[in-house]
């Protein structure tokens, strides 16, 4: 009992200490200055806590409702069929999403294969080679490119890249995983190279000086000392770029062809998780298995992007420990 009251007074103490030292005691009336201040402080704090809880609630409700709707798929479709069958023809009741899952991973991998080397070269150029005025010009331009809407990149892909690819292959085939990967590369390049640029720039000067003192050339210093030292920062940029590539919708849907067939060739119309959702969700009846299967695909995307953030977190912690 006594403990309880002392805890009570302690709590009161913290509340009142937020009021500042000018108020020692109130006049005792209902709405004197002390009570008013106490009221303002309390309601402001509650409003802030409520906002923070709202943010958390939003994420949990996204996770919950996506899962609840998505999991209904498995009432009608066996899990193995959904994940491993390549036959996606909802008109005939077959819901195999393997084509899209594979497409998403293949597209992301191809995008990274093209964009990571290029991004690192640009980052090295900006941080180590370019003169200062050029650096001051390029950095804002790259920051700006990050903000260009994805639908514009898709439009560019559709009007420039596809005709170009058709010319190169000499056939009617331009849509496909390569076109999508090139568009995504242009989209994630500014992200990855700016983060890598920052990571390379903060490598302590003494590392470079030590390397030069040992007689290494600039090229050797960059690739054997600077880049390994900036490794975790570069990884951070790569994962962020990857997350963007996996979740990207509008740019991909305009150049990938949107046909549910396995992406086993570079120029073959195919489909990924995001593009398939966008193309089909507006035509399906609510509460149908088709609809639920699309939500399950959305939930998969959500889980993948969640895992990536956790990975980024682990990397940052590792970076902090070293």
């Amino acid at each position: 009992m006594q403990l309880e009251t002392s805890v009570q007074s302690l709590k009161m103490g913290t509340e009142e200490s937020e009021l500042g030292g000018s108020i020692k005691a109130g006049s005792g009336r209902m709405l004197d200055r002390k009570n008013r201040l106490l009221f303002y402080n309390r309601s402001f704090k509650i409003a802030c806590i409520a906002s923070a809880s709202f943010v958390c609630l939003v994420l949990f409700s996204i996770l919950f409702f996506m899962f609840r709707t998505g999991v209904l798929t498995f009432r009608d479709v066996p899990m193995a069929t959904f994940f491993f069958s390549t036959d996606w023809s909802p008109e005939n009741e077959s819901y195999g999403a393997f084509v899209f899952i594979f497409g998403t991973f293949a597209l992301t991998l191809l995008t990274l294969l093209i964009s990571v080397p290029l991004s690192i070269i640009i980052a090295v150029f900006m941080a180590e080679v370019a003169p200062k005025w050029m650096r001051n010009l390029l950095r804002p331009v790259l920051d700006l490119l990050v903000g260009i809407p994805s639908v514009v990149y898709g439009f560019l892909g559709l009007t420039i890249l596809i005709p170009l690819l058709r010319n190169i292959t000499g056939t009617n085939m331009g849509d496909g995983i390569l076109a999508a990967a090139i568009v995504l590369t242009i989209m994630v390049l500014p992200t990855i190279s700016r983060i890598s640029d920052d990571a390379i720039s903060v490598v302590p000067r003494k590392y470079r000086d030590a390397s030069y003192a040992l007689g290494a050339t600039r090229f050797q210093t960059i690739f054997k000392v600077t880049i390994p030292a900036a490794r975790s920062g570069i990884m951070y940029g790569v994962i962020l770029g990857m997350a963007r590539a996996i979740g990207e919708t509008m740019a991909v849907v305009m150049v990938i062809g949107n046909t549910p067939q396995l992406a086993d060739a570079l120029f073959k119309p195919t489909s990924v998780l995001t593009s398939n959702i966008v193309m089909q969700i507006s035509n399906v009846p609510f509460d149908s298995t088709w609809n639920n299967a699309l939500y399950m695909m959305g939930f998969l995307l959500l889980v993948i992007s969640l895992l990536m953030i956790v990975l980024v977190r682990l990397l940052q912690q590792k970076g902090a420990h070293r």
């Binding site: 943010v55 939003v58 994420l59 409700s61 996204i62 409702f65 996506m66 997350a243 996996i246 979740g247 990207e248 919708t249 995001t274 959702i277 966008v278 969700i281 699309l294 939500y295 959305g298 995307l301 959500l302 992007s305 969640l306 990536m308 953030i309 980024v312 977190r313």
Partner: peptide, 14 residues
Amino acid sequence: EVLSSVPSIIVGLF
């Protein structure tokens, strides 16, 4: 952080 990386199509579906 997770919320900021949720793909926009998922926000649309939700």
